[in-house]
Design a protein around this nucleic acid. Structure first.
Lengths: 158, 158
DNA sequence: GCAAGAAACTTTACGTGGAAACTTTTTAGA
DNA sequence: TCTAAAAAGTTTCCACGTAAAGTTTCTTGC
């Protein structure tokens, strides 16, 4: 979703800046957190050309075979116009198949190919493997709590 | 930072999708949270044409008068090339002033104009005002804890 | 004190994701 | 059943933010 990004230069001993209320502004904190985790993602997966949106798309098709393209887009909060392009890329790489079902010929059903399943299995290992992709200062408990709060904040838990 | 965005259509009773491991994937959760909060931001501030990045930039200049442009960019994780354009826009609106200091004529020092200070004061009220911009299911305690965890996750607390 | 390199932006050109309009298929209403 | 409206994707065009290269000003080593 975000282009592979060059690191923003970060001074070893950056002058002190008063963040003021940004320190407690969720919008700001969420953005910084996302920049950080996306950078980590590209550090690990950038070589493959795999992007966060593609990764989550593949994972979701894997968990929900035959899912309709629109529902996929809604779930991942990806705009339909963008989803169309992403799906085409994945199809070009022969990772997924598109099928127009007879019961509704407007829609598109998606499935992983054999190669797609293998690819997902492989990337999944790299993603959850223990290395510095997940490096941060949170304890495992805090990490789970952060995930819980985010699910509640987003409404994903409902 | 993100363009004003049309709402992704969200079905009232969306079919159930198995999120699988995305349910505990910080990258995914952070992205969804950010989409959500940016949408809220535009709902409230979109009319003014004020964007999240501009808002935080103005806040930071307000708290750190005379801050250098590069340090501002580092702090907000905004790329220098983009910061240049944003600063120009804000200068065109006469909200800030750019000054080339004599002790280092490569750099740029930033300050709010009188109009800028008034504008920030005004928007700050709207931003922290109690209305549905901050609507979510978190309790106040949970919201503070979320902010704390995000600061720790990002390293902003160090 | 002069050249070589670094630092702090700025400019240009581009890629990604989005809004709006379009196509095709399905549903609803008369 | 025939037309109007809605639904699901797709296409086109555009804006935002980035990378890479360029400019000017400092700094450093000789």
């Amino acid at each position: 979703m975000t282009p592979p990004t060059e690191k923003t230069p970060r001074l070893a001993s950056s002058q002190r800046v008063d963040l003021g209320e940004l320190n407690t502004t969720l919008g700001f904190l969420l953005r910084v957190a996302q920049v950080r985790i996306f950078d980590s993602f590209y550090e690990r997966f950038g070589d493959d050309g795999l992007r966060p949106g593609e990764f989550s798309t593949l994972l979701l098709i894997d968990c929900n075979p035959g899912i309709r393209q629109g529902l996929l887009a809604q779930t991942l909060w990806i705009k339909p116009a963008h989803m169309t392009k992403m799906i085409r890329r994945l199809e070009d790489q022969a990772l997924i198949t598109r099928e127009i079902p007879d019961d509704d010929r407007r829609s598109v059903k998606l499935d992983l190919t054999e190669a797609g399943r293998a690819y997902v299995a492989d990337q999944r290992l790299r993603h959850s493997g223990a290395n510095d992709y997940h490096r941060h200062d949170l304890t495992p408990t805090e990490e789970r709590e952060l995930a819980r709060l985010l699910r509640k904040f987003t409404g994903l838990d409902r």
